[in-house]
């Protein structure tokens, strides 16, 4: 249970949001040229990090906009929030 600071609406309860998984997984530019291994990597394989993770969230019960957050999955502490298309503020 934690609060998320939506870049458009401000701080709201996490239950208003839906998690969209790991961020910065780039959609293949030439899907027809991908091998099965590369498809599997894109579709299914995840780092699933215990620690600092970059991820996408959607304010599903609010403005319905997507954005990114940097969260520590060990304690659910959020270190940064940034808009789609922006570079992560921390490494």
């Amino acid at each position: 249970m934690f609060l998320i600071n939506c870049p458009y609406c401000g701080e709201r309860d996490q239950s208003e949001f839906s998690a969209g998984g790991e961020a910065h997984i780039v959609r293949p530019k030439q899907p027809t040229e991908l091998s099965d291994d590369q498809w599997a990597e894109f579709l299914f394989m995840r780092k699933n990090i215990k620690g600092i993770q970059f991820e996408r969230w959607n304010h599903a019960h609010g403005c319905r906009k997507w954005f990114n957050i940097v969260r520590d999955t060990r304690n659910d502490k959020i270190h940064a929030v940034y808009k789609m298309g922006e570079k992560p503020p921390i490494k």
Binding site: M1, Q14, A19, E55
Partner: peptide, 9 residues
């Protein structure tokens, strides 16, 4: 959501 906290919301 992904979490290792063993508590949940």
């Amino acid at each position: 959501y992904v979490s290792y906290t063993q508590r949940g919301s």
